[in-house]
Nucleic acid binder design. Structure first.
Lengths: 139, 139
DNA sequence: TGTAAATATGCCTTGACACGTATATACTTG
DNA sequence: CAAGTATATACGTGTCAAGGCATATTTACA
């Protein structure tokens, strides 16, 4: 029994830059393979392969027009991505003013270090000494 | 000169299922590596590596709490994804009734086991014959 | 200071996937 | 039917990410 390879989750599909480009192209209107090929300057087989992936993943659909195939978008999978993203929305809007307050505070007194979060200290807060604080973590 | 490996676009970052799981976990509150490890049942090195990717990509940030590192979300990159997704929004709401009409039509004529795509003739309506041809597209 | 806990890193293997080139298939028109 | 156009598919190849395992690093604590 042949098992389907990979490439299921909508996220893996849109991870590919060329695929995203194709999808963006199709927002305006349906396009043939050749048109996509020219506009994005990719080779024809590459376009066809990506379209295949997109079609099998349900991001696009095609109809036949003589020797051409016209591809257009389908909405479902996008909504899926959107749904996942939704759980973070509340978070990021909530964080905008928190950040503002934070920056505001920063501006006033010089160095009240870190913790933008409600200082939710956990476990043993034993720190024998206010050690010069962590090094610039991020990267 | 060390060049940064790969993994730039936010989309590639969230393409990884484990990474998405971690992000979802962090929605509720910040977590230590160990907590993530246990909840998601991944090995510690795997968690650390994914966190590193997420951190370098700007999806999360960390602070030091004794030997622990507490990771929490950062909003920016999510917004980036959201922004890309935005261009499709108008499209998918507009397409809901179009889809309904589409399904309605499907119900009427039985044939073409082909693709979910209906043979919707456009342009040159010349087709000498409605050849039932066509292998099952979508695997 | 030695040991344990928590986390990070390095190396290696494996598998997926994107691309190119070549070729097959489908449809059109003369 | 031949030749051309548009698209799909097969195969070979190079790249790179993900995970396993071992080990380094950092900090707490007895």
């Amino acid at each position: 029994m042949e098992y389907i390879k990979g490439m299921e989750s909508a996220f893996e599909i849109i991870a590919e830059p060329n695929r995203r480009a194709i999808l963006s192209l199709l927002v305006s209107s349906e396009q043939s393979v050749g048109e996509i090929e020219r506009q994005l300057r990719m080779t024809q087989p590459t376009v066809s392969k990506h379209l295949r992936v997109l079609r099998e993943a349900g991001f696009v659909e095609s109809t036949v027009d003589a020797q051409r195939r016209l591809y257009r978008l389908r909405p479902e999978r996008f909504q899926e991505v959107d749904a996942w993203l939704a759980q973070f929305r509340k978070f990021w809007s909530a964080h905008i003013d928190a950040l503002e307050r934070h920056l505001d505070r920063m501006g006033r007194f010089p160095s009240t270090p870190d913790q933008a979060t409600p200082a939710k200290k956990k476990t043993k807060e034993k720190m024998t000494r206010p050690k010069p604080r962590g090094k610039g973590e991020t990267k």
